Amino acid sequence: MTKTKVLISGASVAGPALAYFLQHDGYDVTVVERAPELRDNGYAVDFRGEALDVLEEMGILAELREHDPKMTGTTLIDERGVETGRLPAEAFAGELEVPKQALTRILHRITAGGVRYVFDDSISALSQHESGVTVEFKRGAVSEFDLVIGADGVYSKVRQLAFGPHADALRHLGLSGVGFSTANYLGLSRSGLLRQTPDTAIYLFSLGTAERLTVSLSFATTSSALDRRGRDEQEQAVRAAFAGHGWETPRLLEAMSEADDFYFSSTCQVHLDHWSRGRITLVGDAGYCAAPTSGMGTSQALIGARTLARNLASAGGDHASAFATYEAELRPYVAENQEKGRQTAKMFGGGA
């Protein structure tokens, strides 16, 4: 019997997780990733509730627990750096927190033996027909697949090609920000510092690495337009937002310009009337991002991947039925997480 050929775009979390379940269900799975190699960006991801069951089912929960830095909590400070309160570790870390690099490497390791990974390439065109999807790639040869699944993040190329422009799906939550790392000159160890003003927030933390300090500088914005601008313009926006701020702010702005892991993003959600079009569907942030402020992105990606795979396996080859049931089951969970994302964005100065 010929295996169903599935193409997954994106090799971060949702894509490899879905590939794991589909491979075990007998599918012929290819994952395409535009990065030249496995991505090591991202600082920490956390898991809550049912996501832990997914990790257990995949056989990696115990291994991931070994990577938990066991954060001790976050100290709230005012504009002078004086402590005003404390937040427990669970406020940011969930029930389990690990460096994202550890998660992506483990997911790749447990799938690489039975899943075809293609790095340094991306989808450039999709054409559906009665028996499949013709896929054109930026570098590779044109190929045929039975199903195509976008697991390629907020700015999903699959969603753009199959569902329409990013602007039609993205909802900006009023926050943008930059992340980077610098020398841990404050001596933080498995702890964080949070300083907020009505329109800005500085969050500093160390995941147990004595030498490095992770920095997040967020500020109120009216759109996500800066996401598509160059680093110089993004840095200028950050400097303007934090101009005149005291405490460690000037030193952090200087470190931002020197950082080689600079990352800028806006806090957005993805809202679509339907997550599927014919033989193409979406999973994780590509289809229903709840925003980083929800604290549920990684958990939602894992649960979404398992839910989609389970429905495909039980539908007996009827992808339309599987996609519909997947969406019906998951939408209430996504709606709850997206509401959390909106409310937390407001707490950090967003205008959602």
Rank of each mutant, 00 (worst) to 15 (best):
A201N: 12
I202Y: 11
Y203F: 14
L204W: 05
A210C: 00
A210M: 02
E211P: 01
R212T: 10
T214F: 12
S218Q: 15
A220Q: 15
A220Y: 13
A220F: 11
T222Y: 12
A225S: 12
L226S: 02
L226E: 01
G230R: 01
G230F: 01
E233L: 05
E235W: 13
Q236F: 12
A237R: 11
R239S: 10
A241M: 09
F242Q: 12
G244R: 14
H245M: 15
E248Q: 14
P250V: 01
R251V: 02
L252E: 02
E258K: 14
A259Y: 11
Y263N: 09
C268H: 10
C268A: 08
Q269H: 08
V270I: 12
V270W: 10
H274I: 02
H274A: 07
W275A: 02
S276K: 12
G278M: 01
R279H: 07
T281G: 00
L282G: 01
V283S: 05
G284T: 15
D285G: 06
Y288V: 03
C289M: 09
A290E: 10
S294I: 05
G295F: 09
G297S: 12
G297R: 11
T298A: 12
S299R: 10
S299G: 13
Q300D: 14
I303L: 10
R306E: 08
A309S: 11
N311I: 04
L312G: 01
A315P: 01
A315I: 07
F323P: 00
E327S: 04
